[in-house]
Measured scan of single mutants.
Amino acid sequence: KVTYHVPNEEFARKLYKKAVDANLNVEIRVENGQFIIHIE
């Protein structure tokens, strides 16, 4: 399980798409202006 803290929405979207394309379980949320992405 990996967690990324991404300040940039564009990068967060790319990361999310890559994980989904790889059939990984992804959860994304915004906290204090940062995008928190959990990948399992």
Rank of each mutant, 00 (worst) to 15 (best):
V20H: 06
D21L: 12
L24K: 03
V6A: 11
A22M: 14
Q34K: 11
R29E: 06
E9Q: 04
A19D: 01
Q34W: 15
F11T: 14
H38Q: 13
A22R: 08
Y4T: 03
L24D: 00
A19L: 15
V20Q: 12
A19M: 12
Y4G: 03
K17T: 05
E27G: 04
N25S: 11
F35A: 01
A19W: 12
R29I: 13
I28P: 00
A22D: 05
F11S: 13
V20A: 06
I36L: 06
Y16G: 01
I36E: 03
H5W: 14
K14A: 13
A12E: 03
E40A: 10
P7S: 15
E40D: 11
V26I: 06
E9D: 04
K1G: 14
I28N: 00
G33N: 05
N25A: 10
V6E: 03
A12L: 12
Q34D: 05
N32K: 07
Y4L: 12
I28R: 00
L15G: 02
A12I: 09
R29V: 13
V2S: 06
N8G: 04
A19G: 04
Y16E: 03
N25G: 04
I36W: 09
G33S: 03
E9P: 04
V2E: 05
L24Y: 07
P7H: 14
F11V: 14
G33Y: 05
T3E: 07
L15S: 01
K18Q: 13
E10L: 04
E9T: 03
R29Q: 08
H5A: 10
E10M: 04
H5P: 04
E31H: 08
Q34L: 14
V2Y: 12
N8P: 04
N23S: 07
L15Y: 03
E31G: 04
K14S: 07
A19N: 02
D21A: 13
Q34G: 07
E10A: 08
K14T: 09
V20N: 03
Y16M: 05
E31Q: 07
E31N: 04
V30H: 10
I37K: 00
I28L: 11
N23Y: 13
I36R: 02
V26Q: 00
E40P: 03
K17D: 08
I39M: 04
F11L: 15
E9M: 08
H5C: 15
A12R: 04
L24Q: 03
Y16A: 06
I39F: 05
I39L: 04
R13S: 05
A12H: 03
E40R: 11
V6I: 11
V6R: 02
R29P: 00
Y4W: 09
N8R: 02
Q34H: 12
V30T: 05
P7G: 13
N25M: 12
A22T: 02
V6F: 13
A19T: 03
I28G: 00
I37Q: 00
E9I: 09
P7I: 14
V26D: 00
K1I: 13
E31Y: 06
A22Q: 08
Q34Y: 14
R29S: 08
E40H: 13
N23F: 13
H5F: 14
I37S: 00
V6P: 06
E27W: 13
F11K: 06
E27L: 09
V26T: 01
T3Q: 06
L24W: 08
L24P: 00
R13I: 12
V26M: 02
D21N: 08
R29N: 05
A12M: 07
N8H: 05
N32V: 06
A22S: 07
K1W: 15
E31S: 07
L15P: 03
A12V: 06
F35V: 05
V6Q: 02
K17R: 08
V6W: 07
Q34C: 14
H5K: 13
N8A: 04
K18L: 14
K17W: 09
Y16N: 01
N8V: 05
T3G: 04
V6H: 05
V2Q: 08
A12C: 13
Y4R: 01
L15D: 03
H38V: 15
V20P: 01
K14D: 12
Q34S: 10
K14W: 15
F35Y: 12
N8S: 10
V6S: 10
N32H: 09
A12K: 04
V6G: 12
N32C: 14
Y4D: 02
E10C: 15
H5N: 07
I28W: 05
D21F: 08
V20W: 05
Y16R: 02
H38N: 09
N23H: 10
V30P: 01
V2D: 04
I36D: 00
N25E: 07
A12S: 01
H5D: 03
V26F: 04
L24R: 03
I28T: 01
R13H: 10
N23T: 05
A22W: 11
K1P: 11
I28S: 00
N8E: 06
V6K: 02
R29T: 10
N23P: 02
V26L: 02
N25K: 14
Y4N: 02
I39S: 01
E9N: 02
E40G: 12
E10G: 05
V2H: 11
N25Q: 12
E40T: 13
T3L: 08
V30G: 02
Y4E: 02
E10K: 06
V20I: 12
G33C: 07
I36H: 04
R29M: 09
Q34F: 14
F35R: 00
Q34M: 15
E9G: 06
E31P: 01
N25P: 05
Q34A: 10
P7E: 14
I39E: 00
K17S: 06
K18Y: 13
E27C: 08
H5R: 13
H38K: 09
K17Y: 07
E40I: 13
R13N: 10
L24S: 01
E10Y: 07
I39H: 01
A12D: 03
N8F: 11
V6L: 10
I39D: 00
Y16V: 08
I39T: 01
V30L: 09
A12P: 02
G33Q: 03
I28E: 00
I36M: 05
V30C: 09
P7D: 15
N25T: 11
I37C: 04
N8C: 15
H38D: 11
N25W: 13
N32L: 06
G33F: 05
E9R: 04
Y16P: 01
V2G: 06
E9H: 05
V2N: 06
A22P: 01
V30E: 11
A19S: 04
I37Y: 01
N25C: 13
E31W: 09
E27T: 14
T3D: 06
K14Q: 12
T3F: 09
L24G: 01
E40N: 13
A19K: 02
D21H: 08
V6M: 09
Y4S: 03
N32F: 09
T3I: 12
N8Y: 09
I37W: 01
H5E: 06
G33I: 05
T3C: 15
E40F: 15
R13Y: 13
N8Q: 04
R29H: 11
R13K: 13
A19V: 05
A19C: 11
Y4Q: 04
K18P: 02
L24M: 07
V20S: 06
D21R: 09
H5M: 12
E27I: 11
K17A: 09
E9F: 07
N25H: 13
K18D: 11
H5Q: 09
E27D: 07
F35P: 01
D21V: 06
A19I: 09
H38L: 14
N23I: 12
I37P: 00
L24I: 04
V6D: 04
P7T: 15
K14P: 03
K14R: 11
D21S: 10
L15V: 08
N32Y: 06
L24T: 01
I37T: 01
A22I: 09
I28M: 12
V30D: 02
E9A: 09
G33E: 03
I28C: 14
R29Y: 12
K1N: 11
D21W: 11
K1Y: 13
E27M: 10
H38Y: 12
P7F: 15
E9V: 08
N23Q: 10
H38G: 02
V20D: 01
I37N: 00
Q34E: 11
N25I: 13
N23K: 10
K18N: 09
V2T: 08
E10R: 05
Q34N: 10
Q34T: 12
R13L: 14
N32I: 09
R13D: 07
I28H: 00
T3Y: 08
R13F: 12
D21T: 07
L15Q: 02
P7K: 15
F11E: 15
P7W: 15
A22K: 08
R13M: 14
